[in-house]
Design a protein around this nucleic acid. Sequence first.
DNA 1: AATTTTTCATATTGACATACTAGGTTTATG
DNA 2: CATAAACCTAGTATGTCAATATGAAAAATT
Lengths: 144, 144
Amino acid sequence: MKISTKGRYAVRLLLDIALNDGAEPVRLKDTAERQDVSMKYLEQIISILVRGGFVKSIRGPQGGYRLMRAPEEYTVGMILRQVEGSLAPVACLEDEVNACSRKAECVSLRIWEELDEAIAGVVDKYTLKDMMDWQKEMKCEYVI
Amino acid sequence: MKISTKGRYAVRLLLDIALNDGAEPVRLKDTAERQDVSMKYLEQIISILVRGGFVKSIRGPQGGYRLMRAPEEYTVGMILRQVEGSLAPVACLEDEVNACSRKAECVSLRIWEELDEAIAGVVDKYTLKDMMDWQKEMKCEYVI
DNA sequence: AATTTTTCATATTGACATACTAGGTTTATG
DNA sequence: CATAAACCTAGTATGTCAATATGAAAAATT
């Protein structure tokens, strides 16, 4: 029941791009340094986000990445599902292919369904905008 | 973000023991047949539950397993944590050893904390007794 | 045009976990 | 004593995770 580093890095990566957006697009090298993670690994993660239409890339010197939409339009759940796939706690909830033959009688399933809803309820409640606001508040506190 | 078969089997195994409890203790062989899973695998799972004081075993012919306590005293969360370990969605929430150095400034952590609470809220809400009741209701519906 | 800086693409790796299977030992019953 | 159950340990195939490694392609600067 763990969120992978891929999922966690993806959220932090998009947050970093949102926070550092300015005249120039955000370079992966800088994000990697700021967050102290492998740039090569981030490259793989961002390529999923580019393909998913979450960010656009600008190649060449002074290139980098920018968000495609406003920060409030990215829920944490959207990001996690894009890089990790389904967040369902059991495969039988995902689709018909993974559904098990005992689905109708399975009383465990009721709990897994409620768990799935609870998870979605949290990750779909927050957006990059919320995280940006928290980050800014925090910076303020440090200054004071 | 998946619950392992070990966790799911453990819940169903204890439910099976609860439902089939009678004059004789419940044999693993019967549970394995009823649920169509490997008995050898169930042996490994139940040994964790024996060590954790969830069930007691009776050896020899006419042996088997019985719950140590009343079904309402087993939450699904207790069972999952016993066989899977922590249900925390990220390692940094587990303990001081796994905590990361950026914990104080990490805004993602707020979301993971809320997610952790949401997960616990569901799995600790239901007990084996609830599942037994659902199972019995369902049997009724089939008869009607 | 050459160089540099960035993204883009694919392959490989080592460690670990998952989901079992196999084979045997111990304990109690009839 | 034969049998039926739990108990114990090891092995194994498969896959996933979390990266590294290598280099190509594109675009801006010099």
